[in-house]
């Protein structure tokens, strides 16, 4: 275990986790809105936002799957030291972290059970950028319509059709975070 793994956690966990959760709560409640979080400095390729979300939501009872280049020793060490979450395959993950192409195919992740739809996985997607442009979002939490730069359209449409089953997504870029719960309807649209 290197020194990198020991640093980069919350300095004041209760307060920082509370603020980060409120940002995530607003993001999930209002799909398409972009919020800023801070506190974690995780090893690359994790973003500040992805690390902060993991510190806020994951723990020893919430298995995490690392996809693609997120599955590297520094990230494994960092999660083991700060979060203590079991690192598992896609099938058993409550949270998964990775770039969009590394998370595919989405069928590997658990979409919840018909009688317990809350048991679905949450995917934390590492993005280069997040803007309010591109896909058109409607549904609960959105007054009229919102726009968000999603990595693709069809996968999210297929996901929404399964409602009340389905995966929930948290997008992170730098210290910015946005969310797309399974309840949101996604339409493809040219960037504005």
């Amino acid at each position: 275990m290197t020194g990198i793994a020991l640093g980069g956690g919350f300095s004041h966990p209760p307060e920082q986790a509370a603020r980060a959760f409120r940002a995530v709560l607003e993001a999930v409640s209002r799909p398409g809105t972009i919020w800023t979080v801070e506190g974690a400095v995780p090893p690359a390729p994790l973003t500040v936002a992805a690390g902060t979300v993991l510190l806020t939501l994951a723990d020893g009872t919430a298995p995490v799957h690392l996809a693609g280049d997120a599955d590297c020793q520094p990230v494994r060490d960092w999660i083991t030291f700060h979060i203590g979450a079991p690192l598992v395959g896609a099938e058993g993950a409550m949270f998964a972290v990775g770039r969009w192409q590394d998370l595919l195919p989405l069928g590997r992740f658990h979409p919840g059970d018909p009688d317990y739809p809350d048991r679905a996985a949450t995917l934390i997607v590492l993005m280069n950028d997040l803007t309010n442009a591109g896909a058109r979002l409607t549904g609960p939490g959105i007054k009229d319509a919102a726009r968000l730069s999603l990595p693709e359209i069809a996968a999210f449409q297929r996901n929404a059709v399964q409602f009340p089953l389905g995966l929930d997504f948290i997008f992170t870029a730098g210290d910015r975070v946005a969310a797309l719960p399974r309840s949101t309807k996604v339409e493809g649209a040219a960037c504005m």
Binding site: P13, P14, T56, L57, D59, D118, A120, G141, D168, S183
Partner: peptide
């Protein structure tokens, strides 16, 4: 006491339940 009484692991558990509740509006999350 910890900030807002509950310990951090309990809060994380409740926070995960709240987010799943928001993702499936009206569904009761245990």
């Amino acid at each position: 006491y910890n900030f807002a009484y509950l310990d951090e692991q309990t809060k994380r558990m409740i926070r995960r339940a709240i987010l799943k509740g928001l993702a499936v509006p009206g569904y009761q999350v245990p």
